[in-house]
């Protein structure tokens, strides 16, 4: 069997295992950004479009190269931008609401600390 093909298959299969390990740790909270982010990752086929367009020498290859570049760039850059837009919105409680806007939790926190102090003293 062709060595390059064989090595490629090793890379493919081992990466699929790695992918399962990494992806299974992503909480369902983030599944939409995950899907849109991995969607952007396969936009890397843009580099195939670049190679076709860059080496084209016949009209049909120019056309296919153009399609590859346009669709690939659309997938890659659109996917990255939309994923970033989504992830920017995910905020924890503390960051999202500054103390000024929501005095109660901050106050409660201080109170809790004060209540603990007498315990520590003796």
């Amino acid at each position: 069997m062709n060595q390059e093909l064989l090595l490629g298959l090793y890379v493919l299969i081992l990466t699929i295992f790695l992918g399962f390990e990494v992806i299974s740790r992503v909480p369902s909270l983030l599944h939409t950004p995950l899907m849109s982010g991995t969607n952007a990752i396969h936009g890397i086929v843009l580099l195939g479009g670049i190679l076709v367009a860059g080496t084209a020498d016949r009209p049909i290859l120019y056309l296919l190269g153009f399609l590859g570049c346009a669709l690939g760039a659309g997938n890659l850059f659109g996917g990255l931008v939309v994923t970033d837009r989504m992830l920017e919105m995910f905020k924890p409680r503390a960051e999202e609401r500054p103390a000024a806007a929501r005095p109660e939790p901050a106050g409660a926190g201080v109170q809790a600390v004060r209540e603990k102090e007498p315990v520590r003293k003796p």
């Binding site: 490629g8 890379v11 493919l12 299969i13 990466t15 699929i16 295992f17 790695l18 992918g19 399962f20 990494v22 992806i23 995950l34 899907m35 991995t38 969607n39 990752i41 396969h42 890397i44 086929v45």
Partner: peptide
């Protein structure tokens, strides 16, 4: 191959 496999797994 690596990028495609990661997306395929996901």
């Amino acid at each position: 191959i690596v990028a495609g496999a990661l997306v395929g797994a996901s």
